[in-house]
Each structure stands twice: as structure tokens, then as C-alpha cells.
Design a protein around this nucleic acid. Structure first.
Lengths: 232, 232
DNA sequence: TCAATGGTTCGGCGGGCGCCGAAGCATCAC
DNA sequence: GTGATGCTTCGGCGCCCGCCGAACCATTGA
């Protein structure tokens, strides 16, 4: 009885083309913004919002607010498993979320991308780790960092425009931003943006048009080694 | 794209309460008639027929005609697996088809029941096996048996009304009928009905009212041992 | 042959829900 | 502060699909 209703309710949630499209995109194991999911499903933001709310309510998805975006991801590996077994029935083999084909198909995106205006992916993490490891960055509160004196010097040498970064008084200066592909925080906020700007200005990295993917240039790779002590 | 559509189509099929109810019933791993499924889902036969046709079309179910009934079962273990993982998401743990709770909940039905007018379940199989093992019954064509001379004698001793059975000229005399709980054929047709009738007449078995379940009496158990050399 | 039973097909009704436009709220940048 | 952006809520439209009554077909048993 109640188990039958539960089955039909969960299945019905997955049974709508728009929601299935979102779930399918989320099978890459990463989190996506509401607008990203809406665009991908070919529906308007308000329609998507309703779908997402229902799936969160049913514990299919988990939501996390970050700035003015909301990131949605599959609530658990069990959800991915259920979707996978349904896809298997349809004759279309789906790979587990942890080893998603989409994930592997776009290793570049995982390697380096923009997250708003700062760097994310392996490169973003490498920069962040380097700064903390060398004592340039230290925790300040639960979701922020602050630049140490040595950090000030380091940024000055790199050419990071700290002055401009500090001017944006209403913006967080050195914020932690959870990296969805690496599952660890990278640096965002005004400082994160200034660092990314430095990478682009000095020709260490290039944005790929119509994509969040960022390509690390040869000089960028060398800079990562010499300035940050990191090999990626 | 196509994989997304496939996902939503399969999920949508399972997402209807009536269909989910049917699938849930079929999770016992056995086959059920169309009317059985319709009744269980609380819908009319014609509505159920449409649902069943769609699920067969999508390879969720397999159908098998038997007499004027149509038996439906899950098309594959994969289907059961997918349903199970959906139920798990709903927080309602479902057991695998092979060890279904429903199955265990009604061991009596599995032990002995009527299939139309003849015996099915473990008892039906025991009787059938005994007859073939003792050379009373031998294959005749792909779906029939015939009674050997020793079989004629044996039935006469038991009190099986062979004359009446042979009178029904339009009916198959000794037909194979696939037993859905034992997965092997038991004897049906006029002879099967006559044998069942003997069981009831001699007080070896009793029908339970409003159920296909048949109870084997103590004398029936003894008769199985003495006449059929079977212990159940 | 005829009646009974199980199953399916057809046609039309009705309700649920997926959709978007408009408006409202929060965050961010300046 | 003001404007821009991302997301949500609300209201109403439209369509899909699940439902049943009626009729039809197939098998069975007399």
C-alpha cells in the first residue's frame, strides 16, 4: 500500500522529461546551478525552480546556496544507483556517478575552469593549497581566509592588484568556495578574482569561448611550478 | 538526449499508481493474471489491459497466454532490481524477487492451490512427478501427456473418474500446465481435473473459501506417501 | 451450437500537472 | 543608494493521460 504509493511517487518524479534531463545532467556527480539545469532541460527558470523544489523535498536532490546561485546535486549515491538501474533497463548503459562518462569526457573542465570570476578545478585548488601551505593565507572565521604579511608580499611580487581588490568593500575579500569537482574549498571573493585576473593578464591562462573551461598555457604551467611550487 | 527520454519513459511507466501497484504485486517473482492485477490495483479490467500492454511493449513485463487467461510477470531480474532500488529510495525496503515477503507470507498458496480445476503448487508437482516416475504418464507431443496402461490401472485403483474425463471430448485430456511457483509443468486438462476432484472427494484436500489456496489434510498427506511415494 | 468467462479495443470524459508571464526577494557590483 | 542577476512564488492556460462504459474477440465447457 504505502510502499506502492512511495514507489509511484518517486518514479513519477523521475518520469517527467524535464526532471529526467536534470537528473541525467547531475549524474556526473557534480553540482549545477538552477539556471544551468533549466537551460539544459530546455525550460524556463521558474518551471525548473518548481521541479527542483519537488526533487529536494523528495530527497532526490540536495541544494546548497552559494552567493546568489543555488547549486543542486544528487542527494546520495543511492539516487544515482536508482537512476542508473533505470537507464540500464532502457538499454542505455549509464556509468556510476563517481566515474561518469561526462566527467571523463570533459577532463579539461575538471582541470581548470572559472567559478564566476575566479579559478576552480585542479588549478584553483593547487593555487589555494600553495598559498596556505606557504603561510600566505590563513583561516579567518568559518568561511573566510585572510592574507598574511608574507601573502601581501607574495601577491605584490606576482602583480595581483590588491588595491582594487580591497576597494570592493561590500565584497568578501578572501572567501572559501567549495570546489564541486575536487570536493574541497578554493579561494574566491575579491582576492580570488584578482588572482584569476593576474593569470589571464600575464598569459598564464586563457578562457575558452562559450565555456567555463580555462586552458592553462605553457607559461602558466611554468608559473605554477616556480611561483606556487605546484605541478598539475 | 535519447538516453534522457529513455529514462523518463521508463520512470513514467513506473510512476503511475495503478502500474506501480501491479509491478509491486509482481515483485513476488510469480506470474499473475490480468484480472488479478486489475483487481489488486483497484481498476477495471480494460484499464489494466492498457497498462499491461504498455509495460509489455516497454519490456518491463512478459506475457504468456494460458487458456483464456493471460499471465504477466516481470520481464527480467533487472526490472525487479530497478524497482527495488526505487523502493529503497522511498525508504521502504523491498526484498529481492527470489525471496519475496509476499511469497513467504503465503507459503500455503505455494504449497498447494487450485489452478482452474486442477492442483498446482508443490502438491500438484509431486503428483505429476510421481505419475511420470512410476511410468503412469508419458509425453505425447510438446504440451501433452498420455496415460499408460499402468496409469489406467493406477487411476482406477485411486477412484479417478476416467470415464467422465474422457467424455469431455473437446477438452485436452492430459495437458501440461506451467506451474508459476515451481517453474515446472504440472498436470491439467480433464485428467488433472479428475485427479483434483478425487483429492477433494476422498477428503485428501480442502478448498479454502475465497482463495485458491488448498489445504492438504492429514489423510491427504498419508495418501501422497502411500499412493504417490511423495513426502511434501 | 450456445452460453459463460477472461481479455482487449474503442471512444469520450475529466482532472492533474507541466508550462510560462509577471511579480517579488536576495545577493552582488558599482 | 541604484541597477543587474539568479532564484522563487503566484496565477492561469492547455494538454496529456488515466479512467470507465460499451462493444468485440478468444477460449472453454456443455
Amino acid at each position: 500500500m504505502t510502499t506502492v504509493n512511495a514507489l509511484s511517487e518517486i518514479a513519477a518524479l523521475m518520469g517527467d522529461p524535464a526532471r529526467a534531463s536534470m537528473l541525467s545532467l547531475l549524474m556526473d556527480g557534480r553540482a549545477h546551478t538552477a539556471s544551468d539545469l533549466a537551460h539544459n532541460a530546455g525550460i524556463t527558470a521558474q518551471t525548473a525552480s518548481g521541479h527542483l523544489a519537488r526533487m529536494v523535498e523528495a530527497d532526490l536532490l540536495a541544494a546548497r546556496a552559494q552567493g546568489r546561485n543555488r547549486f543542486y546535486r544528487l542527494a546520495s549515491p543511492e539516487v544515482a544507483h536508482a537512476i542508473e538501474s533505470l537507464m540500464a533497463l532502457a538499454g542505455t548503459r549509464a556509468t556510476p556517478a563517481s566515474k561518469s562518462a561526462a566527467w571523463r569526457r570533459d577532463p579539461d573542465l575538471r582541470f581548470c575552469r572559472t567559478c564566476y570570476d575566479h579559478l576552480a578545478g585542479q588549478v584553483g585548488i593547487a593555487v589555494t593549497d600553495s598559498l596556505t601551505r606557504q603561510g600566505h593565507l590563513e583561516p579567518k572565521g568559518p568561511r573566510d581566509w585572510q592574507l598574511t604579511p608574507s601573502g601581501e608580499l607574495f601577491c605584490g611580487k606576482l602583480g595581483v592588484d590588491l588595491g582594487a581588490a580591497r576597494q570592493a568593500s561590500t565584497r568578501h575579500f578572501a572567501r572559501q568556495c567549495l570546489d564541486w569537482s575536487e570536493r574541497r574549498p578554493h579561494i574566491s571573493g575579491a582576492l580570488g578574482a584578482a588572482i584569476a585576473d593576474t593569470f589571464f593578464r600575464r598569459g598564464w591562462a586563457e578562457r575558452l569561448r562559450r565555456s567555463r573551461t580555462v586552458r592553462l598555457t605553457d607559461s602558466g604551467r611554468r608559473a605554477l611550478g616556480s611561483h606556487f611550487g605546484a605541478t598539475v
